[in-house]
Computed example of a mutant assay.
Amino acid sequence: MRNVVAAGAMLVALTAAAEAQPFRLIVTHLEPPLVPNSVMDLAVELGYFEREGVDVELVRVQQTPSAIAAIRAGEGEMANVGLDALLQLVARGTTDLKAVTSPNKSLPFLIAAKDAIATPEDLAGASFGIGRPGSLDHSLSSSVLRAAGTDLDAVEFLTLGQPDVRGQALAAGRVDATTMSIGVWEAMPDKTGLHVLVDQAAYYAAAPVVNKINIVPQAVLDERRNEVLAVARALIRISRDFAADPSQWVEAIAPFQPAIEPATLDSIAASFAGSWSVNGGMNADELTFSQEWLYETEDFKDLPAVELSQWADLTVVEAALEELGIDPAADTP
């Protein structure tokens, strides 16, 4: 009996010790971004994770490939990555990574262009800045432009990298148009000679694809599930608070964006209406649609099909919503 009690005590001690370790969340930005994805940074700053009883430590890398490499190397417990990258891994045989929540499932993209480009059709013969060939911004924007009547064969796509770099290239006249987030657009210091060619609402309507998801290795889900749930709850709570009162986001983000005027931040916050993941961002129908859409792109042409259950675990968000209830305002669960 004493041996059983001792073994039980040791198990409790080992579990407590494991959960005392920081829960490392890998993000693909170097500072809180001007998009709803900033909830991950701000949940640390404002104590949302702490109040849920989880010690979250952010690990910062640049772009999804680095985040994937980091989590596969055991350098984090959760990572915010592009859905396309996860699906490619799963299609190639990876079985131990699962999407569990999405704090910003659809980045608020728009297409900006020189004033001379009055309509999407005018892009024929023009240059268009992209992250890289086959990147999500390239694929999504191609769908949006095709739906708007653009002859894509007549567009010159130029690889430029991150959205802020593409914005700078557009402002400098190096390209005629590009895709960026509403935050990058609003933060541009000089938009003389530029305009929004396809606004945020029209962009998402043409390509309603889930972009970013938070993944965990199956071992983390098995061994540290309580912390995974706590992270999901914290991200839902902060998303709901920002959705209900955008001025809270403005106040929280302002110290990290000192060069941006308060009025600009107010405008950005207003543009996020309906974009906050107030229910965890894991709608099965949207995820399935996104998967099917991605499989129609060039990057997936030779890859075998996968099932939703192979790469997503919906039980984490379901458990969080059982406790928090469903917010009927947006983000249908």
Results as ranks from 00 to 15, higher is better:
Pro133Leu: 08
Ala270Arg: 12
Val27Ala: 07
Asn80Ile: 02
Ala254Gln: 14
Val39Glu: 02
Leu110Pro: 00
Val54Glu: 03
Glu50Asn: 15
Phe49Gly: 07
Pro120Thr: 00
Gln200Pro: 01
Asp245Trp: 04
Gly76Glu: 02
Ala20Pro: 00
Phe256Thr: 11
Ile215Glu: 01
Glu298Arg: 15
Glu45Ala: 15
Leu265Gln: 04
Glu307Leu: 08
Pro328Phe: 08
Ala118Trp: 02
Arg2Leu: 10
Asp115Lys: 11
Val317Gly: 10
Ala206Trp: 10
Pro108Ala: 11
Pro108Trp: 12
Pro108Arg: 11
Ala205Trp: 11
Leu160Asp: 01
Thr64Phe: 04
Val5Leu: 15
Pro333Ala: 15
Arg51Tyr: 13
Gly82Gln: 15
Leu89Phe: 11
Ser267His: 07
Ser143Tyr: 09
Ser277Thr: 03
Asp313Met: 10
Pro255Gln: 13
Pro304Tyr: 05
Asp176Tyr: 12
Phe49Ser: 09
Ser139Glu: 13
Asp84Trp: 10
Gly173Phe: 02
Asp164Glu: 12
Ser309Trp: 09
Glu57Cys: 05
Val220Leu: 07
Met282Asp: 03
Ala73Cys: 04
Gly167Lys: 00
Ser267Pro: 00
Asn283Ile: 06
Ala230Glu: 07
His195Ser: 05
Arg146Val: 00
Ala269Val: 00
Thr15Ala: 07
Trp276Arg: 03
Ala169Phe: 03
Ile213Thr: 10
Trp185Val: 05
Ser127Met: 03
Arg92Gln: 15
Val278Phe: 02
Glu323Leu: 13
Thr150Glu: 01
Asp84Met: 10
Leu229Phe: 04
Ala201Thr: 08
Tyr48Thr: 09
Leu11Trp: 12
Pro258Phe: 07
Thr15Pro: 00
Pro258Gly: 05
Leu265Ile: 03
Ile68Ser: 01
Gln218Thr: 13
Ile71Asn: 01
Asp327Ser: 05
Leu303Ala: 10
Ala7Tyr: 15
Phe289Asn: 08
Pro36Arg: 03
Glu121His: 06
Glu318Ile: 01
Ser66Glu: 08
Pro328Lys: 13
Trp311Thr: 07
Val5Gln: 13
Val61Cys: 05
Arg240Tyr: 12
Gln248Lys: 14
Ala20Glu: 05
Met282Phe: 06
Glu19Met: 08
Glu261Asn: 12
Asp241His: 13
Gly125His: 06
Ile236Asn: 10
Ala73Val: 03
Ala320Tyr: 08
Val228Pro: 02
Ala169Arg: 02
Pro189Tyr: 10
Leu145Lys: 04
Val216Cys: 11
Gln62Ser: 13
Arg166Pro: 00
Glu121Trp: 02
Leu314Trp: 09
Leu14Thr: 01
Ala99His: 07
